[in-house]
Amino acid sequence: MINKEELNKLIEAKGEVKGVVFQTDVKYVLEKEGEAGLKKIEDKVKELGLPINYKSGAMDSYPIGLRIASLLLIKEVFSWPDSEIRNIGYTAPKTSFIVKLLMKFFISIEKFVKKIPTFWDQHYTRGKLEVVSFNNEKKELLLRLTEAEIHPTFFIYLEGYFEKMLQFLEKTSKAEMKESVHEGKPCHECLIKWE
C-alpha cells in the first residue's frame, strides 16, 4: 500500500513532468472503469493531498514524482497487476497530445530514431534518453536512460510506451527494459526488436 512517506519523497524529487501524462492516464481509466473509476482516483488524490490535476493541460508542468504517484494510485485503487500498468504505457502514445504534435517524425524509422531524445525531453526535465545503437538491418534499437531514478512501476510503464512508439512505424515491435550499468553508474536500457 502506498504510504505518505513514499509520496512525499516522490514529490520532493527534482525535475518536472508535463501534464500530458495525467491526460493519458485519465483516458485509460475512463475506458476501463468509466466515470466512477475516475472519481475513485480523484478522491484518492484529494485524500492524499496530491497536486495532481487530471484535467490538466498537456504542457502544464508538475513535480516529476507525480508521474509515478499517479501510476501507483491507479494500480492500488483498482488492484491492477503490472501487465495493466504496461498497458497504460502502451496505450499512452495513442492518445498523447505531445505525441500528436511530434507525429511529423513518424515518417521513417531513421528520422524517428534521431528524434527519440526529443520525445523524452518534451515530457520530462530530468533524465536523459539516448540511442545506444540502431540497426535497421538487424531490426534492433537499444535505448539508454540515464540521470534518472526509475521506480519499478514506471519501468514497466516505459516498456509498454516504447513498444507502442515503434509500432507506429514497425508493426511487430517488442520492447524489453532491463537494468544496466553505464560508466559505473546504474541506468536503464530498453531493447526494441521488430520483424
Binding site: K27, T95, Q167
Partner: peptide, 26 residues
C-alpha cells in the same frame, strides 16, 4: 503516416467505424 499507420482520428470516425480512439490509433 507514410507507413499507413493511423495517428489521429475525429470523433465522427470513432462513431462511424465503431472503434475507440485507443483501438484504432496505431
Amino acid at each position: 503516416n507514410p507507413f499507413n499507420t493511423i495517428l489521429n482520428i475525429t470523433g465522427k470516425f470513432e462513431k462511424f467505424s465503431g472503434y475507440k480512439e485507443t483501438e484504432i490509433i496505431g
